[in-house]
Design a protein around this nucleic acid. Structure first.
Length: 224
DNA sequence: GGGAGGGTCAAGCATTACTG
DNA sequence: CAGTAATGCTTGACCCTCCC
């Protein structure tokens, strides 16, 4: 049972797909049926929701406003359903988390496993993507919160928590620095090195340690 | 039975990409 | 550059289901 009208479902599908045809394929109905709903709504609202372009439909400002609100209403309805369950004494809920690949294993994965074990009634939906995609999902209310790198570089998002991550260096056992107890950036500067893509390591805007390595571009290779 | 709402199908039109 | 195919939106005609 959904409190959202056909129009809301169709509108959201077109907004996501950017095309009537693709939305129609996704919803398994004809494009003309969706088009009628949208045209009818635009007439009622007195404002166009989409721009008709050769390559498909693009949301107007009014359309974007409606889409944002629709996502928020859907999220709030989920919370309402949870509150209904609580009223009936049911303990149930779901949390959607977006996270970068780097966190999908190790201590964070172990912590998630603990949560799943401790609260078996809780449904966890995990989405793995790059930082930019995760932050977009948070903006669009597609996930409840995200775990990303470079959170301070994402405009329009609230950073609820922040942790410093230790940086590691891997090298062959026969490398002269392999036995060193500690390394500084200066120790590494004269060696050829490989760094991950910028999006994967950028921890804070400006002043991060790896930025210093960019002083030696001739000795650097970047992973794609 | 008839109206309303919502669906499909087919045709038309516009734009873009491809091809000779 | 013109012809053609592909893609996508719109519209008209018609059908089905539900409700009064």
């Amino acid at each position: 049972m959904s409190p959202f009208s056909r129009f809301a479902i169709y509108f959201a599908a077109v907004a996501r797909c950017g095309s009537l045809r693709r939305a129609a394929e996704k919803l398994h109905i004809s494009a003309s049926a969706i088009n009628r709903q949208i045209l009818q709504a635009e007439e009622e609202f007195g404002t166009p929701l989409f721009e008709r372009l050769p390559e498909g439909l693009r949301m107007t400002t009014a359309g974007e406003l409606l889409y944002d609100n629709l996502l928020r209403w859907q999220k709030e309805f989920q919370l309402t359903r949870q509150q209904f369950d609580e009223l009936q004494g049911l303990k149930r809920g779901s949390v959607s988390i977006g996270m970068v690949q780097a966190l999908a294993e190790g201590s964070f994965a172990a912590a998630l496993a603990d949560i799943i074990t401790s609260w078996q009634w809780l449904e966890l939906n995990l989405r793995v993507a790059d930082s930019h995609a995760v932050s977009e999902k948070v903006r669009q209310a597609d996930v409840d919160f995200g775990l990303i790198l470079d959170p301070e570089g994402q405009a329009g998002l609230s950073v609820l928590a922040f942790v410093e991550l230790a940086m590691g260096v891997v090298m062959r056992p026969d490398c002269p620095l392999a036995q060193a107890a500690a390394l500084s950036l200066g120790d590494l500067s004269h060696l050829r090195h490989i760094v991950p893509r910028r999006a994967a390591y950028r921890a804070r805007p400006g002043g991060d340690a790896l930025s210093a390595l960019r002083l030696f571009p001739g000795k650097q290779h970047q992973l794609q």
